[in-house]
């Protein structure tokens, strides 16, 4: 049974791989290579200059991607919500000084779940 499985899996994988478009095959090949090199370096070359450089390289790529993703999230979602709030004159930070209110104290709002149940949650 095991022999049959072992024989079938590579054959199926190969067939699946060959059906993929060329660019996907290239990407998958690169990812697999990176994964295998990482495993080898992590096992046999941890602490070496080569491993440190390898890690730093991918950390730099990670930092760039993080910046790109966060920029998109910030300017699309945060920006959009901000635009709507400004259109409706809403300021969550209550920065207006001439609001005519005699006090800047706000009543404390206890958890609607009750004190004990509310303490179970992070909100």
């Amino acid at each position: 049974m095991l022999t049959v499985l072992l024989a079938l899996v590579p054959a199926r994988l190969e067939a699946w791989f060959n059906r993929l478009p060329l660019h996907n095959r290239i990407l998958l090949g690169v990812a697999l290579t990176v994964f295998v090199v990482e495993l080898i370096l992590r096992t046999w070359a941890r602490g070496t200059v080569a491993y440190k450089r390898w890690t730093a390289f991918f950390q730099a790529i990670g930092a760039v991607w993080t910046a790109v993703i966060l920029s998109v999230v910030y300017f699309v979602s945060v920006g959009l919500v901000s635009l709507f709030q400004r259109l409706f004159g809403h300021d969550r930070l209550d920065r207006r000084l001439d609001d005519g209110k005699p006090t800047a104290w706000h009543a404390h709002e206890p958890s609607p779940l009750g004190e004990r149940q509310g303490a179970r949650h992070q909100f």
Binding site: Y74, V78, G79, S82, L93
Partner: peptide
């Protein structure tokens, strides 16, 4: 924090980028 980023958009970009990760 999110409310503050929204209220101070777009000046809060650097703070957002640093804090979110």
């Amino acid at each position: 924090m999110l409310s503050t980023y929204v209220a101070t958009f777009p000046r809060s970009f650097n703070s957002f980028r640093k804090a979110m990760p």
